[in-house]
Design a binder for these strands. Structure first.
Lengths: 249, 249
DNA sequence: GCAAAAGTGTTAATGGTACACCCATGA
DNA sequence: TCATGGGTGTACCATTAACACTTTTGC
């Protein structure tokens, strides 16, 4: 990314992606460790002048995860005047990661479009760091490292948006592998909602929506009774989401 | 706005506001008619470099409505590469509303933060047009004029966001006058949801939330039985919105 | 007095909550 | 065989949906 042909990029505009994955019963997010800093950051990037902002987000997603078809939702623009400090750019510059010309670019005031993405954890075999970062790792939501700038609030807002969308977007479909068990689906809901649900009622309710299909197979190898494997019935799922899964009005 | 000191403004960034009002049982939005065009536009503006994007939206709101304390919610950034055409600027330039220098500014590629605002209709006595528009008027949602650029989709998305937020934001409080009747509140909900609700069940459900206070007065002058007047109990309202009015999980 | 709108009440159906119970599996 | 987790059933309760009925008001 160094040596940007600056004329090609939309000034003062970036995208940041909160990439959610689900593994071992926990929600995780993909974070980058910044070169020469102990702080971590959300994967992000700049926007080409000729490019949709959505396309920029897709590009970032692909660069980090290697995946192209990802559920991606833009939830808000972050536009506080003081949100982008120059400290980070200064450190990069001192360590030789940024030359003079690019430094000026990084020291502009930036507004950033916040996206959240839902990916199937197992498909992201090797998350890749970008030019300015030394590591790219999954972090569980409950134990996050220090994040730079306002990335904590971006993340919080993404989770809030995800909760709000839970009944209207294909959250389960996007985060879970093709086949999954009912307990796994429940753990996912519990992780997103931040509270525990009744096992039996959850099952009945979910099956009541008519969006799940029992494959007939069970998940063997667990320590206890083998649970059934399910798949989503995609057409019925889409249909049900139109009006919202638990909507009241 | 002509003769912008261009160095003070954030390049390629604007805000657009969908200002909702409620009058005579119908949802309305405030639109501007562009100088020399038959198309209408959402009230909008640019963002100063030293200003929060939210502040820019508040500024626009105040300029059009004269109101300062307005419920305002940013719902999404609109960032299609082709969304801002140069046609509008060309027309303004030809008619003498834009000089050469400002023309270049207007012909940049713009991304725009979409806000929706909820105002008490009666408090907006005289909406004011801006420099580039010849009229500023309320239009009912069901019969909207042709809108420029992608403002139709901005508006549709604002309504969708409003629906999604109905159980989590003080929608009634913001759109209705201090005192209102139950039928008025119901009409508001029906207008937002786009469907009719049962009168009696609506009333019971609303009263069940414990967020309304019957003043003891009735609205006289109507053609029929005089309905009670209510006010919101603001503390209880805020409280109830925390968990969502009709949330299921 | 009539039509139309507002307030109150009742009932059946639906859906959620809180359980008890049985089944499968590995240690 | 026991602890643990998974699957099914049921009884109870709250809420919703769909009604009937009464009250008020202007014409």
């Amino acid at each position: 990314m160094a040596k940007l042909p600056l004329a090609d990029w939309h000034p003062g505009l970036s995208v940041d992606c909160v990439i959610f994955g689900f593994h071992n019963g926990a929600l995780k997010v993909l974070l980058l460790q910044m070169q020469g800093m102990d702080k971590w950051a959300l994967p992000g990037g700049f926007v080409r002048k000729a490019e949709d902002v959505d396309e920029a987000a897709v590009r970032v997603l692909e660069e980090r995860t290697g995946l192209k078809e990802i559920f991606l939702e833009q939830y808000r623009l972050f536009g506080q005047a003081g949100r982008s400090t120059t400290e980070h750019a200064r450190v990069l510059h001192q360590n030789g990661w940024l030359d003079e010309e690019d430094l000026a670019w990084f020291q502009q005031r930036f507004v950033s479009a916040g996206y959240y993405a839902l990916v199937e954890y197992s498909k992201v075999s090797a998350p890749r760091a970008d030019y300015f970062s030394s590591a790219c790792e999954w972090w569980p939501l409950e134990r996050l490292p220090d994040l730079m700038l306002d990335h904590s609030s971006l993340l919080d807002a993404a989770l809030a948006a995800l909760r709000l969308h839970l009944n209207h977007k294909p959250v389960g479909l996007s985060l879970l592998p093709e086949q999954f068990t009912m307990p796994e689906l429940q753990q996912l809901y519990e992780a997103i909602l931040g509270k525990s649900l009744d096992r039996r009622n959850f099952q009945r309710r979910m099956l009541g929506y008519g969006i799940l299909c029992r494959t007939g197979e069970r998940r063997r190898g667990g320590a206890h009774k083998a649970p059934w494997l399910y798949e989503f019935e995609e057409e019925a799922y889409e249909q049900a989401l139109q009006s919202g899964l638990g909507s009241t009005w």
